[in-house]
Write a protein that binds this DNA or RNA. Structure first.
Lengths: 136, 136
DNA sequence: GATTCTCGCAACACAAGTTGTTACGATGTT
DNA sequence: AACATCGTAACAACTTGTGTTGCGAGAATC
């Protein structure tokens, strides 16, 4: 697997949880469905919980539940919860800072920022519920 | 250094070469300016040569030159020459292919494709010459 | 022709990030 | 008490990006 597999895993899990929001799903169940490991699932879903998209409960009949209705969770929410960014803003500014480098950084950063914003707008237009319905 | 450092390096080198297109620049010079290694420079610029943006000459007074006027090289040309993509299309399709996974893949791919296209359009609107002038 | 300069390329080392796995403690249910 | 489940740390394996060394090929100069 490669980059973006975390986003795929998160969305996949949410999609399934949208089917019956009452029943809590265990990380073992989710992992089996996604072809990965329960610990990996907890790592990823832990970020979604931190962002308020999910709740988790320990103990018997514990597991993961949506914290909101699937109509109220957009792909953008999930993307932001993972705290990854397509654009790499971390362009090390060299100390000598030649003017070409500076002009390039400004121009490329501006474009990347616009693209990132555009991406978020598009992701915000699709909810987990939309995806669930599209899958039927 | 992180991702995108190849694009930065490539653009940086092109920006400097745009100043005097006559004089060939050696990978050692470029590397010193960019704070990296000549072999790294050759690796990156080799892709630009393959794409027809640069030429290289061996031997005494050899080095790198622009293959076209800097007005005719856009940031999109460079981005494409590096053969990297922001979007990771390589989402391993699992054999069992659950319908949620399929719907998600379709939806996210569509969005990513649009964003990639939008990025290319924006990059195509700036030339190396534009950047050089902005640096003055 | 010998020397020097330069690119081309392969090979390797190192660091960082991603994923999978094991282990164990904490918490909740039966 | 026994069991199920999450939370988290630790580690291994793999991939990727970058830096480095070494050496051969081609081209200019002496």
């Amino acid at each position: 697997m490669k980059r973006n597999s975390r986003l795929s895993l998160a969305l996949h899990a949410l999609g399934h949880m949208a089917y019956d929001a009452e029943h809590a799903q265990t990380s073992t169940e989710i992992a089996a469905h996604a072809g990965t490991n329960p610990v990996v699932v907890r790592r990823v879903l832990g970020k979604l919980r931190k962002a308020g998209l999910l709740t988790s409960e320990r103990g018997h009949f514990g597991g993961w539940r949506l914290a909101r209705a699937p109509q109220n969770i957009t792909l953008a929410d999930v993307y932001l919860a993972l705290e990854e960014r397509l654009i790499s803003t971390s362009v090390d500014i060299n100390p000598h800072q030649c003017s070409i480098e500076h002009a390039l950084h400004d121009r490329v950063s501006e474009i990347m920022q616009d693209v990132e914003t555009s991406l978020l707008e598009r992701l915000a237009n699709t909810t987990i519920e939309d995806v669930r319905q599209a899958a039927e």
